[in-house]
């Protein structure tokens, strides 16, 4: 399979994602410059973290107009896999490929720290290698990761099992103390109705090697690879 990693001006997790898919997992991988429009050779598109266009106006609000995003919409409509991490999640929400929005952390500060995520539903291509209820330890690094959607949208997502990750404590309990940014329902990652687009604020690419403090990110990349093997 081949991963395609999109690079917008201001993206900075591109190299980290490439390192994991290519060097750690040995998968074919290439960068996609934001003005490229050919995604035909790609099996899974990664929208990595960073500050696309500085995120000065609103996270992802400029990046959504990049030429690649038009192609990405078609790619998504064809049912192919897209994972948005951090800024990638923000861009997916901004462009309407995922519901809701990510607003300023309720602590009004940037947060870079390890968090625990509870896998809410393993029945999708991004966490198939996990158990439902499994706890993953993954770092966050964002200033605007506070997930918000109106109640109707939340209800519909709950109904359709679209909430994939929730912030929890080390025992898997979803508590206010374990929520690092004020996200509604402790939401850390969601999937679209068609279950081919995942957005998550935490950075799985930062925890795929033991020397970096943990390997739980591998569950996510290996789940994606599993689909194509």
């Amino acid at each position: 399979m081949r991963f395609g990693i999109v690079v917008f001006p201001g993206t900075w997790s591109d190299g980290d994602c490439y390192h994991v898919t290519k060097s750690v997992l040995g998968q074919d991988s290439r960068y996609i410059w934001h003005t490229d429009t050919d995604l035909s050779d790609i099996d899974c598109v990664v929208l990595p973290g960073g500050f696309s266009y500085g995120d000065y106006l609103r996270t992802g609000s400029i990046a959504r107009f990049s030429p690649v995003m038009h192609e990405l919409q078609k790619f998504v409509n064809e049912g192919r896999l897209v994972i948005g991490i951090c800024n990638g999640f923000q861009i997916l929400c901004e462009s309407g490929m995922l519901p809701g929005a990510l607003i300023r952390n309720n602590c009004v500060q940037f947060r870079c720290e390890w968090v625990n995520l509870r896998v809410e539903d393993r029945k999708n291509n991004f966490v198939s290698q996990c158990e439902t209820g499994q706890i993953l330890r993954v770092p966050i690094s964002h200033g605007e990761g506070n997930y918000y959607a109106d109640q109707e949208t939340i209800n519909s997502m709950l109904n359709d099992n679209q909430i994939v990750f929730r912030y929890c404590n080390e025992f898997g309990e979803v508590t206010a103390e374990s929520n690092p940014n004020g996200s509604l329902n402790n939401i850390a990652g969601i999937i679209n109705k068609n279950r081919n687009v995942l957005g998550m604020m935490p950075h799985p690419e930062r925890c795929c090697e033991a020397e970096l403090g943990g390997k739980d990110g591998l569950y996510i990349f290996e789940s994606i690879i599993k689909k194509f093997s």
Partner: peptide, 14 residues
């Protein structure tokens, strides 16, 4: 202080 700083990007921080 340091939880306001991204100390992991580039994935080299041991």
């Amino acid at each position: 202080i340091f939880r306001q700083y991204d100390h992991q990007v580039q994935t080299n921080t041991l």
